[in-house]
């Protein structure tokens, strides 16, 4: 039986089946919500406010849903515990995997919850230039703004990307067995817009 089925079946049994404890120990709990933009209004200094807004965005950026596919190496990670993807898959020439092991070999256009396989119309790995893994929030911030490393996007383009790209939006609807990114895409988009409007300042470190 698919593990998704297994869990729901187990719930039906009134008992919890295998899969919860040891190996599947999850990453430290992350904030499930995002602070609304308005709550940053108390920060008088615009630059400080911008930095604070970005730090809040960091809860999403550094969440497993986003970080897993912005790896430092050619290999993505998976699960909330951020283990290396099994089987071994790589970015490949165009971010869509290796010959005979393209992302689409397993990932369809939509999540397939019975088998807990996530999916999206353009399931792919972020380009190496957009690697976030192992970087500080400050470094990620500078990288995000660098048009050589962000897909040639200006700030408006970035906001549009995170609010309309289906693969980014997938982070909030990741399917069975995965924790969604904190907050909502609308909240995240609003934070980013506010960050852009406040000068898109980056944390110092």
């Amino acid at each position: 039986m698919r593990s998704g089925l297994l869990l729901s079946a187990a719930a039906g049994f009134g008992l919890c089946l295998a899969g919860s404890a040891l190996t599947l120990a999850q990453a430290p709990p992350t904030a499930a919500s995002l602070r609304p933009v308005e709550s940053f209004g108390t920060i008088a200094n615009q630059r400080d406010r911008s930095v604070a807004l970005f730090a809040e965005m960091g809860k999403v950026i550094q969440h497993p849903r986003c970080m897993n596919c912005h790896p430092a190496t050619e290999r993505p990670r998976q699960t909330d515990a951020r283990r290396l993807h099994q089987p071994l898959v790589v970015r490949g020439k165009d971010g869509h995997g290796a010959p005979a092991m393209a992302c689409t070999t397993c990932h369809g256009k939509q999540n397939y919850d019975p088998a807990r396989i996530p999916g999206d119309g353009h399931w792919a790995l972020a380009p190496a230039s957009m690697a976030w893994e192992g970087k500080s929030l400050a470094q990620i911030c500078e990288q995000l703004k660098d048009q050589n490393r962000n897909g040639s996007r200006d700030l408006a383009g970035l906001v549009k990307h995170v609010t309309t790209d289906t693969l980014v939006l997938w982070g909030w609807k990741p399917g069975a067995g995965r924790e969604p990114a904190p907050g909502t895409p609308e909240q995240f988009g609003a934070l980013m817009q506010a960050w852009a409007d406040t000068g898109a300042a980056c944390p110092a470190s």
Binding site: S20, L22, T23, L24, Q86, P87, L88
Partner: peptide, 22 residues
């Protein structure tokens, strides 16, 4: 194959890791 309070933990090949070609 780990037992946690008597229950098997590894549910499929994603956690019962099996040798792969590489």
């Amino acid at each position: 194959l780990t037992l946690d309070q008597g229950k098997p933990v590894q549910a499929n090949f994603d956690s019962y890791r099996s040798l792969r070609i590489q």
